[in-house]
């Protein structure tokens, strides 16, 4: 073996060991290596956000073009319908919608009354298909810290696990690393919910630790339970789609999350009430 080949092999081995050490260290949730993202990730964020805005605009235009005929037909239909409606019925429909929105806001307000809401845009989604996470355009500069909960009006989305200066990475609840306690909404039974392998792109959650006498069936809604001050109580997680029995005789259930993660455009980060929200 020539001297050049020996040097090449030596460098290759050193780099491989170094990368393997980095992977092992960064796999630890409390790793100091995550600070590396704050240094490198901050300038990348601005470019990402610009391209994300362009990408969203292009995506919206593509959607509009694809649905053009359908939208045109719907518009014609709605115009005809609108001519036949009386002004009183329109006003009534408007008031009903307002009433529903106010009720939804009131319920959300009670659930998250100990938190402030910080709106954030999703700037990148996972492209590898292996990590159920995405990046948002707020970071420690706006008061976001690791461990903060992320929600939408439909329910629980995930948790911030790597907060940079101007952007943060959020791990979705369907990720295998996520475990949380939940309650069945109609009978308050406590169960454990964890993310599952996304090998088949199902994006389902698995419920275990179901008490033998607990009632759980398809269609039940799960909400977050009090669990070590991580998640606020009462946030919607999802709906039970299947109940089964494991090989060891214990029951399990599969839950479809209430949030569609692949179509997320904006989310809300919950900041504890004591924290001030620095302005942009």
């Amino acid at each position: 073996m020539s001297k050049k080949s020996k040097i090449f092999l030596f460098v290759l081995i050193i780099l491989s060991v170094l990368m393997a050490v980095f992977v092992a260290i960064s796999a630890n949730a409390d790793s100091q290596l995550h600070g590396f993202y704050k240094v490198i990730g901050t300038p990348v964020y601005y470019v990402q956000k610009a391209f994300s805005s362009v990408g969203n605009a292009i995506g919206q235009r593509i959607t509009i073009l694809q649905d053009y005929k359908k939208i045109q037909a719907e518009i014609d239909s709605l115009r005809e319908e609108n001519e036949h409606l009386s002004s009183l019925e329109d006003e009534n429909a408007r008031l009903e919608r307002e009433n529903e929105e106010l009720r939804a806001l009131l319920e959300m307000e009670e659930t998250i009354r100990d938190y402030k809401i910080l709106r954030a845009n999703v700037i990148t989604q996972d492209v590898t298909g292996w990590f159920n996470e995405f990046t948002i355009d707020v970071g420690t500069a706006r008061g976001v810290q690791n461990g903060y909960v992320v929600i939408t009006s439909r329910g629980l989305v995930g948790i911030v696990y790597n907060a940079g200066l101007v952007s943060s990475k959020v791990r979705c609840i369907i990720d295998e690393q996520n475990v949380l306690m939940a309650r069945i909404s109609h009978n308050d039974e406590l169960v454990r919910v964890r993310g599952t392998s996304n090998e088949n792109y199902e994006g389902l959650l698995r419920v275990d630790r179901i008490a033998p006498d607990a009632e759980i069936q398809e269609g039940d809604t799960l909400v977050t339970a009090e669990s070590g001050d991580v998640y606020p109580r009462g946030l919607t997680i999802g709906t039970v789609v299947r109940v089964g029995v494991d090989v060891d005789g214990t029951r399990f259930a599969e839950v479809e999350p209430s949030v569609h993660f692949s179509t997320l455009i904006s989310v809300n980060v919950l900041l504890p009430q004591g924290e001030s929200v620095p302005q942009e």
């Binding site: 990368m19 992977v23 993202y37 996470e133 990475k169």
Partner: peptide, 19 residues
């Protein structure tokens, strides 16, 4: 840094496959 979760995972993978 941009898309991954574990620093070094794709570094290792890309390095070996590029070689």
């Amino acid at each position: 840094i941009v898309y991954g979760r574990y620093l070094g995972f794709y570094g290792l993978l890309y390095m070996f496959f590029a070689v």
